[in-house]
Design a protein around this nucleic acid. Structure first.
Lengths: 329, 329
DNA sequence: ATGAAAGCGCTAACAC
DNA sequence: GTGTTAGCGCTTTCAT
């Protein structure tokens, strides 16, 4: 395809009048084991520059058994960067990659044929994997068995070190905030999946609420539409606030409120969880728990890098969260 | 790191009692040149399965000179997936990769040191590159000279095939829409950069407006904050509608309107351009031009794939857009 | 229908 | 301080 074949080590060596090995050495000045005359190095670097040489990644990966590329598996075979949560995590992964000198690979995927992915994970293309796996993911077993170095984000996975956020504390802060504002009866909106992070949030909310004398009913919000009925029912049963297990659900409910012509927070207060950085499209500011998802992604990569170097890492890192009071409570 | 070293060709060959070559052949049943007895193939595949073998990607890439990985360069060395535009394009790239059997690499980048990236582009790690380059990007020259197969998205780059959307038609639709609603005096909000797509939009808007007797003043909106003054000034000079060169700017102006206590569209109408799929955080729906950015990303990958196979592709593909009337006009 | 040899470009280990 | 050898795992070419 390319008309100008890229130069290789041999050509550089010939031009500089040295052996391939000397070129290879000249290219990593950091290593103190590779002492060589400054003059030779200079000559080599000159040739490198002239030929516009850069080492072939495939050859290096083959030789070293390490590609300096890591993968990201987000469950069900697909990384949906359109979703703010994944966008945030991927952003953090990029930061971590920049910091640790690795690249990030987003796999091609036949959706629903995630199992085929395993072969890609085992083929030396990537050195390790960051995962954020929904419970019961088909690849879980395989990844664990494969011994591919991996770090989990957001939801812990048995046998894999994890970076999580302090879900329990966040939920507690929300419950306290609502109680402080005078609410006495709330509903807690949950989805159908029950990852560990969700369970921590719900249980902590319920416990704190009980301690504070805040009544809570847990309701399942599954569809995108038709939540108006839910909100209506809540309202007529005396509920004055809805705590949602994440921001996405909170926004769904806000849309339902708008359909009903309800004012937030005057008629009903709404809270979220996750606290993605405000998007330019966002006009209302949600009261939510700000969780450092980008930082979690960055740390995941840094930990994975340590793992790849054979160093020990903590099995579980919990990142602090904070309450962000917006205009919805 | 991994306790279970992955199997290689030789081991599979030994287990099946054949040569490495036979295994290699058995693994690509499609190729009619590689006829072999069904019985042997069966035996080989059995061994492959037993050893959980998958071919080493680095070795294959080294031998074949092709990695089946493509890169994405978004200018200034950084792919910001937090931004809806890039999220949309990356989504499309993923679709294209899935369809054409390639993987997508997001490069690590020292921001501001984008030039160093060139070496990564020339090192055989990726077979080709999708770019969406701001004008004057430092890497432009290098990429073109490197002869690395590339396809541009959104903004054409000299010498590189491009996938763009019909900016001129979109801007025309907006001008017509505003005129039809009775507006007579507008301002067109632009940023500081002037990529080709922007120029097409602006010029087409100005031309259509002139034809329709719609007065337009072009204003530069550069900062995120403090646009209230601009809107105020527009209002007092009799302007009733603001057309923005993209959605992001439209939302900035909507925020300014909200600060001023203005109602949209009663006090002033606002339009955008790009029409990202609604985010769950979005409550208002913007009147905008829906451009198929994900599809553009997908097509870019498909075209790049053709290019890599040595086939000819159109130097420029223009995708249709459509007017989406929301609640802001 | 199957196998043997060569080599893609690189670097670790060991000469000198 | 520098060069030689060997081999990472694969596939193309040519022999059988």
């Amino acid at each position: 395809m390319r008309s100008t074949k890229t130069a290789n080590l041999k050509e550089v060596a010939q031009m500089a009048g040295v052996s391939k090995m000397t070129v290879s050495r000249a290219l990593r000045p950091g290593d103190s084991r590779d002492r060589m005359s400054a003059e030779t190095r200079e000559r080599v670097l000159q040739a490198v520059k002239e030929l516009n040489y850069s080492p072939n990644a495939a050859a290096r990966a083959l030789r070293l058994g390490r590609s300096n590329v890591i993968g990201f598996y987000a469950g069900h075979g697909f990384v949906n960067v359109r979703h703010p949560f994944f966008a945030e995590v991927v952003s953090g992964l990029q930061d971590g990659c920049e910091e640790s000198g690795q690249d990030l690979l987003l796999h091609r995927l036949k959706r629903g044929k995630a199992l085929d992915l395993y072969s890609e994970y085992a083929d030396g293309r990537i050195d390790g994997l960051v995962v954020t796996m929904p419970p019961g993911d088909p690849l879980l077993e395989t990844i664990i068995r494969s011994n591919l170095p991996a770090v989990a984000v957001a939801d812990e996975v048995p046998g894999i070190p994890a970076i999580v956020v302090d879900d329990a504390h966040g939920a507690q802060l929300i419950a306290e905030h609502l109680r402080q504002l005078g609410h006495r009866k709330t509903f807690y909106a949950v989805g159908s999946a029950e990852p560990p992070s969700f369970i921590r949030r719900r249980d902590s909310f319920l416990k704190t609420a009980r301690d504070l004398g805040l009544a809570v009913s847990v309701e399942c919000v599954t569809s995108d539409e038709g939540n108006a009925g839910l909100v209506q029912a809540a309202l007529s049963s005396g509920i004055t606030a809805i705590a949602s297990w994440n921001d996405e659900m909170a926004h769904k409910l806000m849309r339902a409120c708008r359909e009903l012509g309800l004012r937030v927070p005057e008629d009903i207060a709404i809270t979220g969880f996750d606290g993605m950085p405000a998007d330019y499209r966002e006009l209302d500011t949600l009261t939510t728990i700000e969780a450092p998802w980008a930082e979690a992604g960055r740390l995941a990569v840094m930990n994975l890098d340590l793992l790849l170097r054979g160093e020990a890492i903590k099995p579980k890192t919990t990142l602090p969260v904070r309450l962000k009071v917006g205009s919805t409570t």
